[in-house]
């Protein structure tokens, strides 16, 4: 029975996505977006798309989080929504 793992990770993906959008601090949003990407990478690994999961692990959870942190560092952490 592999599908419960699948469902739990899908739930975590949606929770992380909502969290990244709901949190009122841009640095927190960047980190939660990294968590979202990593959960998505796990989901694709379960679906058998190993190459896509590999790319997402290095791109989404690695480089794009750094780019978001750089953007927050060079602008401001403040957000109204």
């Amino acid at each position: 029975m592999i599908w419960p793992v699948d469902l739990i990770i899908m739930l975590l993906v949606i929770i992380c996505g909502l969290g990244a959008l709901a949190v009122r601090d841009l640095l927190g949003a960047a980190i939660l977006f990294g968590a979202y990407s990593f959960m998505m990478c796990l989901l694709w690994a379960i679906m058998g798309a190993v190459d896509v999961a590999f790319t997402e692990a290095s791109v989404g959870a690695g480089v794009s989080t750094v780019l978001f942190v750089a953007a927050v560092f060079r602008t401001s952490r403040r957000t109204k929504d």
Binding site: D51, F54, T55, S58, V63, V66
Partner: peptide, 21 residues
């Protein structure tokens, strides 16, 4: 095995970014 130019390039870039950070 899983991998190729895109993944390897991103990992190499991430290593240099880690150095820069």
């Amino acid at each position: 095995s899983p991998g190729g130019g895109f993944q390897g390039g991103v990992i190499y870039g991430a290593a240099l970014i880690l150095y820069a950070v």
